[in-house]
Design a protein around this nucleic acid. Structure first.
Length: 486
DNA sequence: TTGGGG
């Protein structure tokens, strides 16, 4: 997919047609010839003028030299994937201060450069100039910001109107090639895509690796697991150090928080560490490890900060609000339209809560009804379960997950007999456990590794502390009032 | 009078 898009882009970019670049000065007023971005690319190295819309707004930073710098991404009809422009100025106030993505920018006397096979717009602070206009919703024709050397031209008004028309009524698909944009709920393995998300937390591991905790209000799809049933091999999270409780409690309780891992530093990180921003992660990929989704930033990826007014951000928030407005909307998205005939639960009074709601609950003790999948169990073999039930000494440990978290939950003593619906034979216990873990029936007999897909089950949980001195550190979950059916 | 950044 990505290669096809790149190939088509390259084909278009490689056609070297000489284009008369721009300027003609007449009658005392400057006349500027604006080139579509796609045409400007064919005139690399020549000074050109471009009239485009802003799709991404970078943060202002100190450059490695003496100036301040900011990068924008701009697009027009000829190139909906856009192109990056970096500005420099000795004062942040002189950098373009874009109020909202979708605003319109006029660039005079910029050059197209090709760096490592990718095109960029080079803005020279001595000779180039810019003007910023409000986006499609406005009729204001004068710019809200101009660089010092900017001279408006006669055609600006008309071109601005045309650009706004195009932004309101974009032409049908196929005119431009836009990067694939996915929500967490439609993520797939080994696909390169853009993700618009809220960056809730940034962590720098001692190894120098960065972890972004991101959220878009949707649930990431469930994964299939390998038949490996050993609890020890199934981690609760991918990061070495779990989030401290103070951070955990600031995170939303509905919707998946994806961990995106990155080895490279990007300057947006300093802003993301200080404050919570919506951002566009461009060209990221996801894969599964131990049934947990892990985002990664390949070399071609980048991070762009978004304003809260950005169209994609507004859309995500609206969707989240409508999700919260119904009881069913709060449940795991992947559990909708599924039957829950695997368990009987007795708890009428305790309401439904996600695992994250319980983890961040203000008290150590909490009773809740959850909709979860059993991703592993220890012990899991019928014979071991059988001696567990008869000895009445030890507990069965389950690893439960929903879109918001994974936890260990124990089934102990009387609860065990209740859980399995009586003192069953080893064979009957094996059968029930396999159903819980989603092991396909044919595979259960042989020991061949196949993918398993645990069903969603209703499950009652209660939490409590083991040690008075360390209530949160010793917090444990126990399954109660839940019976696995035949 | 240039680099900076990609």
């Amino acid at each position: 997919m990505e290669t096809a898009v790149r190939e088509r882009k390259r084909q278009r970019e490689e056609v070297a047609v000489p284009i008369p670049s721009m300027t003609a000065v007449g009658g005392g007023e400057a006349q500027y010839v604006y080139l579509p971005i796609a045409d400007a690319l064919k005139a690399a190295g020549v000074r050109v003028c471009i009239f485009a819309a802003v799709s991404e707004i970078g943060a202002a930073f100190h450059s490695r030299g003496t100036d301040f710098t900011r990068t924008l991404r701009i697009f027009d009809q000829s190139r909906s994937t856009g192109i990056s422009v970096t500005f420099f100025a000795n004062d942040t106030a002189l950098l373009p201060c874009v109020r909202s993505s979708g605003d319109v920018i006029s660039l005079h006397n910029v050059k197209i450069t090709n760096y490592h096979g990718e095109f960029f717009v080079t803005f020279d602070k001595r000779s180039s100039s810019f003007a910023l206009f409000e986006g499609k919703a406005s009729t204001e024709s004068s710019p809200y910001q101009t660089s010092m050397k900017y001279h408006g031209s006669k055609q600006d008004d008309e071109i601005l109107t045309n650009m706004r028309m195009w932004l309101v009524y974009p032409p049908p698909e196929g005119v431009g090639l836009k990067d694939l944009e996915l929500q967490l709920r439609s993520v797939q393995s080994d696909l390169t895509f853009d993700l618009v998300c809220k960056v809730l937390h940034v962590y720098e591991a001692p190894s120098g690796e960065w972890i972004f905790y991101v959220w878009d209000g949707t649930d990431i799809p469930t994964t299939e697991l390998q038949t490996c049933l050993n609890t020890e091999a199934v981690p609760l999270h991918l990061e070495e150090v779990p989030l401290p409780r103070e951070v955990l409690c600031t995170l939303p309780c509905i919707g998946t928080i994806l961990r995106i891992f990155s080895n490279k530093f990007c300057k947006e990180i300093t802003h993301l560490q200080r404050d919570i921003y919506w951002a566009r992660f461009c060209n990221i990929t996801c894969k599964q490890e131990f049934g947990i989704w892990k985002g990664t930033l390949p070399p071609s990826s980048r991070v762009r900060l978004l304003s809260n007014e950005d169209g994609s951000v507004v859309e995500r928030l609206k969707m989240y609000e409508s999700r919260l407005s119904t009881k069913v909307g709060r449940r795991p998205m992947a559990s909708l339209h599924k039957a829950f005939d695997f368990t009987d639960v007795e708890l009428k009074r305790a309401g439904y809560a996600t695992l994250m709601e319980s983890l961040t609950y203000e008290r150590v003790t909490h009773k809740l009804k959850t909709l979860v999948r059993v991703v592993s169990a220890f012990p899991w073999q019928g014979s071991d379960l059988h001696s567990l039930l008869s000895s009445n000494k030890h507990c069965l440990r389950l690893t439960l997950e929903d879109p918001t978290a994974r936890i260990h939950a124990y089934v102990c003593k009387d609860g065990l007999v209740r859980f399995f619906g009586g003192s069953l034979t080893a064979a009957a216990l094996t059968r029930k456990m396999n159903r819980l873990l989603g092991v396909p029936e044919q595979a259960a007999e042989k020991d061949t590794p196949v993918a398993r897909n645990p069903p969603w089950i209703w499950c009652c949980l209660k939490s409590y502390r083991l040690e008075k001195e360390d209530p949160w550190g010793s917090r444990r979950y126990q399954v109660f009032g839940t019976e696995v059916r035949d």
